[in-house]
């Protein structure tokens, strides 16, 4: 187990160096925006990880409701936390990019608004998991919330395609009033390397989160043993 963790950590570290080299040195500078466009790589790859994390929460929530799976409950918790962290990155790098490209930090545009709602929904999910009460009930309630919250993920993705988004560009595919511009092959390759790097990091973080949750569970079990012994 520890060896696999070390391999994953080494892979993500190596990928990180390659990704940084590709982002800052290898990939071409965009003509219109200049170097600021390079924010795209961390912004999009973080968004990818948050979507992946929330999808994992969705699948694990299904498993918790359907089969009362303990491991799935721990994975869902760790994954939701990571999703929130990476959505926070999206929500901070986005406005910095927007300030330079659109001359404003924030605008209540569909993509930005739905992303903010997504962020708050999963904070709600994490808070629900912390609530007091019978463990099975808390697990079922929070898992039901995890299922409902996932509805927002495709909405965030499709927001710029469904609604009239004047600012946020559609890069891949076509939007309602705009055609996707696509990216240069070098930029696409750099983005793929960044996405792979972030995915490795996600796997490392989930494994760590699950290990912590299991240790917490063990402590709880020991404490119950002590409690029953003295009562």
């Amino acid at each position: 187990m520890k060896r696999l963790d070390a391999i994953l950590l080494a892979c993500s570290a190596v990928c990180m160096f390659i990704a940084l080299y590709m982002v800052f040195i290898w990939s071409p500078i965009e003509v219109k925006m200049g170097v600021v466009q390079k924010i795209f790589y961390i912004h999009v790859s973080s968004a990818w990880v948050s979507f992946l994390a929330f999808f994992v929460v969705f699948i694990c929530s299904l498993l918790v409701i359907w089969k009362s799976n303990e491991l799935a409950y721990h994975i869902a918790g760790a994954s939701a936390e990571i999703g929130v962290v990476f959505t926070a990155i999206v929500l901070t790098t986005g406005p910095i990019w927007a300030r330079s490209a659109w001359n404003t930090w924030w605008t209540w545009e569909p993509r930005l608004t739905t992303t903010l709602i997504l962020f708050f929904m999963y904070i709600g999910y994490l808070l629900l998991r912390q609530s007091d009460g019978e463990r099975n009930k808390v697990a079922r309630f929070s898992s039901a919330f995890g299922l409902v919250a996932f509805i927002n993920v495709p909405i965030v993705f499709m927001a710029i395609r469904w609604w009239n988004s004047r600012l946020h560009p559609v890069v891949f595919g076509d939007g309602k009033n705009q055609k996707g511009g696509g990216v240069e092959p070098e930029m696409l390759l750099t983005l793929i390397v960044c996405v792979v790097t972030m995915t490795f990091l996600y796997v490392v973080l989930v494994r760590k989160g699950v290990r912590i949750a299991r240790m917490k569970e063990k402590i709880k079990m020991y404490m119950e043993q002590v409690y029953t012994h003295f009562s």
Partner: peptide, 23 residues
């Protein structure tokens, strides 16, 4: 350039803070 620097600094700060908290 300042925007690019700020964005990557903030992103890495968030990632490393989370890693630190987790450890």
């Amino acid at each position: 350039m300042i925007y690019l620097f700020s964005a990557y600094t903030v992103a890495w700060l968030i990632i490393f803070s989370y890693l630190f908290l987790l450890f």
